[in-house]
Structure formats: C-alpha cells, structure tokens
Design a protein around this nucleic acid. Structure first.
Lengths: 227, 227
DNA sequence: CCTGTAAAGGTCGGAATGACCCGAACAGGT
DNA sequence: ACCTGTTCGGGTCATTCCGACCTTTACAGG
C-alpha cells in the first residue's frame, strides 16, 4: 500500500557560536534550497526518510552532513503533517532537535549552508519558521527542568561556563550563587578536583557531568535523547 | 518520489469507565487484528494516513469510528518509526493520545473492539505496549502541571469529582483541602453559583472550566490539543 | 434532635527559591 | 611588598509553595 505521502526528516540543530563581536549566540545551521518549491529560501537541513534507517539515525546522518559532528543530544521534536505545508504535494516531516558543541562544528565551505542566530531568522521555506519557534520553546523549557546544557560544552567545564550557557539560551541573567546552589542540589555534576589556572581571579573548579544521573526524564522512551 | 515507507496514524484513547464493581478505571479501547501481522492480537485503533486530511483529523476520525465520540482533548504523542517495528515492512506511525468522557462513549457492538484497563493490558501487536506506556506517562505527567482532567468530565462538576479523576489517573489519594487550594490558585475554574443538592452531606459547589485560561502550555503549537 | 460525613476554610512547619552579602583567591599595577 | 578589581565559593534572610492536619459548616437520615 502507498499513501501518496512523502515522508521527510529534518533537524533543528542548536550550537553556541561567537558573533562578529565575539559574543556567544544561540545559532542554527540552515541550507539554501536550490530547487522549487521555495528555491532560494533557507530551510532546515533534512531530506527524505530512508527505508532501512531509523528516523533518529537519519536525523543524525543529515546533521553530520551539514555540520560534520555527532550531536551531544538528539530528541524528536514533533511530526508536522498539515496537508498544505508544502505546495509541491503532501509531505509529512518528522523533525528532530539537537545540541552540538560550537567548537566542534567545522567551518562549512558550502556556500549553501550558513549559520543564523536562532532569534533572528529570515523567512524560511515551508513552515520552518514555526518549527524553529517550537524547537526554541522546547529547548528553553527543557533547559529549566533538565540538565542538558552541558551538551553545549566539553567534557569538563566551570560552573560559570555552564551558567553562561543558561544565560545565553534563556536570555536573562542568573544569580551565580543561586545557580550554584541549584546545580549542586541536583547532584548532576561532580568536581574533578582540578582548577582552571591562569585567570585573573580566584581559580574556579572544573566539573564533570555525572552520567549516572538521568539528564532528561522522557519516561519509557529513555533511549530517546542521549548519544 | 516514494520512500517505500507506509505512514499510519494511531491513537491512545483514555476514558474513565466503571469496572465490574462499579469503580471508575482508566481504560483504553483496543481493536482486534483480523489479519497478519499479529492476527488475533489487540492493537491501538488506527490506520493508514489519508493524503488529504491532517494527521490530527485522521486521528479524530479513527477515534470516532472506534468510540463514537469527539475527543475532549487530542494531542500528538510521538512518531514511532523503528525499522523493525512491523514484520510486514517499514511502517512509521504518528501516534496521538486523546481524552474522552466515559459517559459519552457508546456501547460498542463490534466484538473486535473492547475496552481494557490501561494498567493491565495483554500483549499487544507491534510496539503498542510501549506506546501505551509512554502515553500513560505523558498523561500522568501532564495532569500534574496542566489542567486537562476536566476533559474526562462534563461541562460542570464538583471539586470532589475533579479530585477523583486525579486520584484515579495518578493512582494515589490526594488531600481534598490541598487539592482545593491548588485548583483555586490556578484560576482555571469558575464557580457556577449552583450547588449539587440531594446528597447526604453539605451540598458542594458546581464549577465550570474557565476557557480563557490556557489549559495546556504547548508553546507556539497552541492549536495542538483543545478541540 | 442527634449523628455521621463531606464541604469549605484555616493553621503550621519544612522545602525551595530569589535577593543579597562577605570572605577567599588570584593577576596585575603601583 | 602592597593595593585593587574581580570572581569564586559559601553563607543569610524573607517569601512562596506544599504536605499534614484541624475546625467549622451544612446537609440527610434515623
């Protein structure tokens, strides 16, 4: 049986990347469409679903083709299937969202791939503006009740670095002392014993993420997420 | 283009229905499969996606065919697409979950449709046991931070009725006084001014749900949900 | 008129949170 | 050697939220 419906997989990829002034900005990579519909407009990286691959694997593969990295976090966002979302026929898109480390992202040479500030996007193809908006909402909501922020960072980091990730994503300043207390209460971080030296001020501790603590509660779908 | 993937829509339908002793039980309707794969096993109501209909409309239509009612709440649950979830070929299922009023549900005459206690299911076809488990988790999680419980009830109800819905779904007793305080703080209910008379005790107030308060926060996807 | 029970409203202590404070520890300038 | 500016790490305090528990009100039925 065939339903006459095309099935696609797309991914909203988040990374913290420095802008012109060197400030870290929440960014996503987009791909310029080279054919109709919406030729010339920017769109989320993605493509047709593969018959032999899991949907998450397809999302991760498309993500790697665009950014050259393996995502630190990958989760299904939503399945978009309104009948009129593509003028070229019925397309149902299973959309994932991912977090990658900004310092791991390769400099893309392809001129049809570019990074954009997540809060300042042009008009995108299809319903991709709505999709990004929803992914942003999920990221911000989940950041406040889960421990996914370290996916933007390396294996070890200071509390200030982690707090800055929260501040950039949530776009509001956080009290350093209260942030510390909250993180310590969650038992999600373990001090490595090492300190960052060479700074102008009191040397901060280095922390490692404690993998024994579930970073996200997805209920029975525990496999969804961490990679 | 065709991906060689079948797209299906299924729904986990929740209702509170009386069991043999008259106690309300969280229940879901299942359909017996009449052909391979998994012939004879029970499965979630659903079918192939329709090329001209939105996914939510397809879910609602299949729901109506099974239960004869319009859902009081309908939301997308997840898109299941593991390559090996169906032995008959690659099937991707967009699964919705719904709440319906138990007293609205028609007595189904079809012997291939039956209601089961959500917590005591037989082995189901495909990965439907996992899907129901996830839907149950979502229902219980969402019940605690949203105001969807009234979807199980009629337009007006008492606080005790609403609390009993919570108690049955969450499977734990709730303090009546604290429940009242929490509900009143949410400003989601409006007293109608009427009382239920005829009871043996102090006559309880009747409440109506305040539609001006968002019952669920789904971010930018506000249309998802309420019907 | 008494009794049993649920409804409605209140108190109290603990936990979590936001706002704020202070000593400790460093690099760099004087 | 000493001062200074800054951040790190640790604390206090008031407010809010929540669970446990108590009291009064209001009915039906005996």
């Amino acid at each position: 049986m065939s339903t006459g419906i095309d099935l696609a997989v797309s991914t909203v990829i988040f990374a913290l990347r420095p802008d012109a002034e060197g400030n870290l900005v929440l960014s996503i990579p987009l791909v310029r469409r080279t054919r109709d519909p919406f030729e010339g407009l920017w769109a989320l990286p993605g493509g047709a679903a593969d018959a032999t691959e899991s949907l998450a694997d397809t999302a991760a593969r498309k993500l790697a083709e665009t950014t050259g990295v393996t995502p630190a976090y990958l989760e299904q966002l939503y399945c978009f299937g309104e009948p009129d979302r593509s003028p070229s026929g019925r397309v149902v898109s299973v959309v994932y969202w991912a977090l990658v480390r900004g310092d791991e992202v390769e400099l893309v040479t392809d001129e049809n791939v570019a990074w954009f500030a997540a809060d300042d996007l042009p008009r995108l193809a299809f319903d991709h503006n709505l999709i990004v908006e929803y992914a942003l909402w999920r990221l911000r909501t989940k950041l406040e009740y889960s421990r996914i922020a370290h996916a933007f960072l390396g294996p070890t980091f200071t509390l200030t670095q982690l707090r800055q990730v929260h501040e950039i994503v949530l776009q509001k300043p956080l009290d350093p002392a209260n942030f510390r207390r909250q993180i310590e209460a969650s038992r999600a971080l373990v001090p490595t014993g090492e300190h960052v030296t060479g700074g102008r001020h009191r040397p901060p501790r280095l922390y490692r993420y404690d993998a024994s603590v579930e970073l996200v509660d997805n209920g029975p779908l525990t496999s969804a997420g961490v990679r």
